[in-house]
Design a protein around this nucleic acid. Sequence first.
DNA 1: CGGTTCACTTACCAAGTGGTAAACAATCAC
DNA 2: GTGATTGTTTACCACTTGGTAAGTGAACCG
Lengths: 220, 220
Amino acid sequence: MALAVTSPPKGSRAARTRATEDRILAVALESFGTKGFDSVSLDDLAADLGITKQAILYHWSSKRVLLDAVIDRAALELIIEFDGALSEDGSGWSRVESVVRRIFRVAMRRPELLGFIREISRIGGDASLRVTADLEPFVARATAYFQREMDAGRLRRCDPGLLLVSAYSTVLGAATEVEVLRAVGIEPTLRSTVVRRRELLAFLYAAMVAPEYARTQAPR
Amino acid sequence: MALAVTSPPKGSRAARTRATEDRILAVALESFGTKGFDSVSLDDLAADLGITKQAILYHWSSKRVLLDAVIDRAALELIIEFDGALSEDGSGWSRVESVVRRIFRVAMRRPELLGFIREISRIGGDASLRVTADLEPFVARATAYFQREMDAGRLRRCDPGLLLVSAYSTVLGAATEVEVLRAVGIEPTLRSTVVRRRELLAFLYAAMVAPEYARTQAPR
DNA sequence: CGGTTCACTTACCAAGTGGTAAACAATCAC
DNA sequence: GTGATTGTTTACCACTTGGTAAGTGAACCG
């Protein structure tokens, strides 16, 4: 993601500045997403980056302003990850399946990204307003897609927004709720993830696909 | 829940002590669940309670030890809320439905309880081990129930643990993921909650109930 | 009644918090 | 080259953090 610029500084001054800000945002996103906003001090961040806290405050005037920047970055990365899947070919179930696979991949490779969105929801106030606004275009596309598929009789008819929330939290839960998985005796290894994804797809398939349409298709 | 003992202290000393500890645990659970463990200082808690921070530290030797006590309390309350539904009469879908309704009720009335469990998962380490251990008996009962229902052909056959996680995170998401709901244009009012619950039940019904069995029943 | 225990407060403390001010060194414009 | 600009550091600061030590008044027990 971020171009990891190491010890010998090169490129124009502007480019190096951009690279530094990029590194800070990347580390901040990771830390905020896994440990939580309040649990990460600016000193912690700076130590991880090998710089001083005041260097961070030079680029963003306060921790809160930095958070806004991290929110924008997280939303951007999320959209990049998922919007592509929504644009892919295929209709009905196959497109839903590709989105679910995409979410799983993100949840496995970059759990902090999804964790961060949750964290922001909890902070509330301006922060969640911001992430909501950032993601609005993507949400609009997704619900519009659901609506079209329902009209075409390929998805079970229901509130498209609620369907999105249900699917979102189901996938997010199965992908990230590690402790709960452990509680039911499922160690989150790589192999079990494949099984989990398969079962979850079956769960979602049953829940979402219109039964009349399903009968005309091979279920998996 | 906690017997709210107000200004004039009465009852035996032991009883009053228990009442105080109860109040502290209740407020701590609420605060930790909504704002997060690190975001709530002992001074904040004490101020909410109208006592001093040192009074809290008298009952629990450190903030971390207090957290353990709050975990135990949260797990106990969760089990009280849900275990009853598992023991109710009825089989197959009707029992699942009653559990879902129960979770919704808890999510609406006491969002901090479910939020706290999430928070604990994120803290990780000893904390999540503890909540896992506390909830183990309940989880065991639930998965055993699913297994029986699958054997009887009333629920779609799949991994019972995964089914529990999927159902759990779906319900929890629809019930608590307020920001996401807002993002898809659903204001979490009381009336919309009823609609949401109905749609979610349909979603889960389609996902969980074995199709052969469903055909013999009135879907709702 | 008198001493002990108990629940709690007042008074602190060292470490860490977000944030400011000023010094400094590399890089840019000329 | 020279002087201004820019990114970063060193030095601070006021305040909050979790936690300790000692004191206090009421309830309990003989």
